[in-house]
Design a protein around this nucleic acid. Structure first.
Lengths: 259, 259
DNA sequence: CGGCTTATTGAGTGCGTTCAACCGGTGTGG
DNA sequence: CCACACCGGTTGAACGCACTCAATAAGCCG
């Protein structure tokens, strides 16, 4: 049973913080926490909050896993070593996302999590989360949902494999746009929190290709670009990149029988 | 509370079957079921088993989600529509794997699951699974572990983005080899259950490239190939493809500061 | 100012695609 | 029985996208 309301900080940078229910009630862009509140009918689950500056590392791959993290604000990137030992970015995260989902399996972090800007995350001790879930079926289901959601997101990344550069980039831009819309921000104008190198690494393209593609999109009038500030001027054209092949070359490599 | 030992079949092809604990005790290559047995100290959780022939579809994307499935024997592929509506294979599954993990989030199947050969799967009603987990903390944690494991697997697929064709193929072959070893089969000689088209689709390469790469691997003496029967003759060379670039061209597109 | 990082642009190369032909096995029907 | 179509797989030749290498520009910071 969880009976703590305030809990001492677990790390040097952690500070004591209020219980989840108070905050969750005020922030609907925090889906998982909403049902943590449900759990708190039985237990008062307290968390520490933690501030990160740009380039700060929240946790590193292979470190022992004890905490999950919920992003309060800010953006992060998670990376894993690729076949050559070089980091490959597997995901970008923003407010409301639950982090370290991939660490449960081995009990050690699979990814390294790095802040792309100033962030605040909430530390959720996994053991206490388990206890809370044991007492609250809705919380447990919500947690399953978060894990399942992450699987769906990773699958979507796998679809990049059969896309060309323009399609991958358009896909990322539209995805970021949706993310911002879901969180109540403008999906038309936003700031790319990650560098060109990060984008290229994530999409499996080089930094030069990213630069060229962004330039092409700008010249075509589909986007406006000012440093990392981006404006999506022509949603439809960007979306149409993903439906029909831009060159008219339809190949469908390895077509299958079951859609 | 789950109080059924035998449960009527839910589908036309389903047949009544024994309770999980009996079988799980006899089959260690069924990781999730092992801890289902744990749950059965409290409840008798019965399942239907279902046979599939090659090319049979277990469930289709967008269908309502009610069942999870545990693979008893056989292999399957799961696919999702890509940006052009064409199916893209996101994973291959074999005995012991838990299916439909990606359906929890929306309550509808995200993928279409198709048998690559004769299969038997166990139907696990998700609602009953939830009840069982509510009564058994170890089962719940085991389930989290399975979900987390799936996330890690999907992440590994994302690493293909920065690999060339030979690296992707070698990676798949070695992964399949490990899968068979884990299940007590030979990791050196096995049968590719999937077509060249499936492999190409999964890896993001064309069928011609797969054929050429397999031919090259054979000519180099790294593998022996007879139709779909494959023998890995030189593990080390295949692995070395993944550590250092075979051409000597080290690029590391988009190198980052945090490994 | 110099040094560094990030981003842009250009020219040439190569890997994987594209299009095409071909092969072996299998099933089907006259 | 053979002729034929069909499917999965292999092989060849040419093209094109993205990589590679290189040079340049624009910020940022000490």
């Amino acid at each position: 049973m969880i009976d703590l309301v305030l809990q001492p900080g677990m790390s040097a940078t952690a500070r004591p913080v209020a219980t989840i229910p108070d905050c969750a009630a005020r922030d609907l862009r925090f889906p998982f926490a909403i049902d943590v509140r449900e759990a708190c009918r039985f237990d008062a689950l307290a968390v520490d909050r933690r501030r990160l500056a740009c380039d700060d590392v929240l946790f590193r791959g292979d470190q022992p896993f004890a905490m999950m993290y919920a992003v309060r604000f800010g953006s992060l990137k998670s990376s894993r070593p690729d076949h050559r030992g070089q980091p490959h970015i597997t995901a970008f995260h923003m407010s409301g996302d639950l982090l370290a989902l991939d660490a449960i399996y081995t009990g050690r972090h699979a990814s390294t999590m790095c802040a792309l800007e100033d962030c605040e995350v909430w530390e959720l001790p996994y053991g206490r989360l388990l206890e809370a879930m044991h007492n609250s079926a809705p919380l447990m289901q919500r947690f399953h949902s978060a894990l399942s959601h992450e699987i769906v997101r990773e699958q979507a990344v796998a679809l990049y494999a059969n896309m060309n550069g323009a399609e991958r980039l358009a896909s990322l831009l539209l995805d970021l746009s949706s993310q911002y819309i879901e969180r109540g921000y403008s999906g038309r104008r936003f700031r790319l929190r990650m560098s060109r190198a990060d984008i290229g690494n994530y999409l499996g393209l080089t930094i030069e290709t990213i630069s060229r593609l962004l330039g092409r999109f700008r010249n075509e009038g589909w986007i406006a670009l000012h440093k990392r500030e981006i404006e999506l001027l022509d949603y439809e054209r960007l979306k149409s990149l993903l439906i029909s092949a831009p060159t008219g070359l339809e190949s469908h490599q390895g077509v299958l029988s079951h859609p």
